[in-house]
Write a protein that binds this DNA or RNA. Sequence first.
DNA 1: TTTATTTATGTAATTAACTACGTAGTTTTG
DNA 2: CAAAACTACGTAGTTAATTACATAAATAAA
Lengths: 156, 156
Amino acid sequence: MTNVIDESGILAISTRLQRLSDQLRKDGLLIYKANGIEFEPKWFPVVYTLHLKPVLSVVEIAGEIGYSHPSTISLLKELEKQKLIRSKKDKTDERKRLIQLTEKGKALINDMQPVWNKMIIALTALTDTKNNLMKAIEEVEQQMKSFSFFERAQQL
Amino acid sequence: MTNVIDESGILAISTRLQRLSDQLRKDGLLIYKANGIEFEPKWFPVVYTLHLKPVLSVVEIAGEIGYSHPSTISLLKELEKQKLIRSKKDKTDERKRLIQLTEKGKALINDMQPVWNKMIIALTALTDTKNNLMKAIEEVEQQMKSFSFFERAQQL
DNA sequence: TTTATTTATGTAATTAACTACGTAGTTTTG
DNA sequence: CAAAACTACGTAGTTAATTACATAAATAAA
């Protein structure tokens, strides 16, 4: 811990969060690879969403994963190239593209289950410290919902 | 809380961290603006580092803030364009560029102090919940140092 | 039933980080 | 002390997200 940012305290919290996120994502990729799974961590939100809700439009997926719709479209393009998802027009609303997992996609999820389980165990061990990271995130999001960082700072 | 990602638990922790980081950074920008300060949150690590250690080379700054040196160079270019920093060649080592704050940079830091204080208060209030976010981050980084996410998952 | 508004999707340009590579000094080694 | 290895910096290209804009279909309103 010799560096300034680690010592600059809470002002650098955004940087710290991002760094932690990146590290976890990088390790995630390594874990999939080491287990012979061809899957990128950034695909997880879309694939997991379609696993739980099998047929959704582009905007619905974007809403579920909390990304903008253009970001979602580009993820969907990658997943389509991998043949993990496919899409069809909604017959009752011609604007909508309905997305679903392909058989290959469903099979991959099946193969990934044991890896996801390992990840859950490892992440739980990693974050189950005196101050639980997942709970801390949830608590802060809750706090922000009632009163954002901006509002709090302006009120002073 | 209707969306899937918020409910998918710890597997989506990297996405959650990133989202929180983005939100805080966006609000940070708004706070600077609302206080009449022309400053971008992404400059904070470099500027704060130079505030504490007044003369550093490019690679030293990169090390302090935990970024790659090309990322650091591009931040330095922006700060130089804003005339907040300047650089000179190290006479004992011709490869090195030594960076320092300009008078304008130092004055800006002075003007920002009250804003930083507001931010510290707001962030502290926001994150001082049952599970303290800053402490949680530090604890997880400590955990990862002895035994990474990848290592933990592979060992199972 | 036109017209206006909203919604769904898509494209283009931008941003903020990265890795990979190249070059020029500096240091180490045979 | 010449060659090899290392270090510092810079550029180019990539990535994963964004915002802004455009278009077409559906819905609401005049």
